[in-house]
């Protein structure tokens, strides 16, 4: 079964075909059902029901009803006349997300970045460290210039921004190669399954 489905998905590399369509439909159907059950048991039962109706001796935690009510409001979309209620939980999620991430981003993307980039531009007796530090400081500075949206990128300023995008592209190139190698290991894993576990050609 595993080999049949693996080959079915791989057959997409040749072209779309009924075998792939079957595997795709099976994958989508099973995964949708699986996720419904997972969410039901891990969210509705574990987070809401078990906290409102806990086991003997445990206190009821009514604060979880807030989430339950917001969830119910989402379901009100099924009633067109009061469907607008579903915008409230949506607004709650989006607003809460923005607020929660503000501090995290300010710390990790802001302060940590600055702290890691403040480096001595020359290290006596260590040419490698000196060159490395200069590349880091100049690269980060030029990258920030590229992501500065309040000024048109032309003239000298535009050239600095262009240098910034060069640094980004070099980073992307390295990241591309690294990730391709990781994907190759996934492919090798599947091939090992087909030729080893299934066909027994690899011992």
């Amino acid at each position: 079964m595993g080999a049949f489905l693996t080959l079915g998905i791989i057959s997409f590399l040749y072209k779309d075909n009924p075998w792939y369509k079957f595997c795709e439909a099976l994958f989508v159907g099973i995964s949708a059902g699986y996720w419904f059950c997972t969410v039901f048991w891990s969210q509705f039962v574990a987070k809401l029901w078990d906290n409102i109706y806990p086991t003997a001796g445990q206190p009821r935690q009514y604060v979880y009803l807030v989430g339950g009510i917001l969830g119910l409001m989402m379901l009100l979309r099924l009633v067109p006349k009061i469907g607008w209620f579903s915008r409230w939980p949506l607004a709650f999620v989006v607003g809460g997300t923005a607020g929660a991430y503000l501090i995290g981003y300010a710390l990790s993307n802001g302060m940590k970045q600055v702290k890691s980039t403040i480096l001595p531009l020359w290290v006596s007796g260590n040419l490698n460290a000196t060159v490395g530090n200069i590349i880091l400081v100049v690269g980060t500075f030029c990258g920030l210039i590229y992501f500065f949206f309040s000024k048109e990128q032309k003239g000298t300023y535009g050239k600095v921004a262009k240098l910034g995008i060069f640094f980004l592209m070099i980073t992307f190139g390295a990241s591309f190669g690294y990730t391709v190698m990781a994907r190759m290991s996934l492919l090798i894993g599947r091939m090992d399954f087909l030729f080893g576990t299934w066909l027994g050609l690899i011992k």
């Binding site: 998905i9 997409f12 792939y20 595997c23 795709e24 994958f27 989508v28 995964s31 699986y34 996720w35």
Partner: peptide, 13 residues
Amino acid sequence: TQDQFGYTAAVSG
């Protein structure tokens, strides 16, 4: 579907 590669397979199709 919420499944990452189930979704990918469907969208690719």
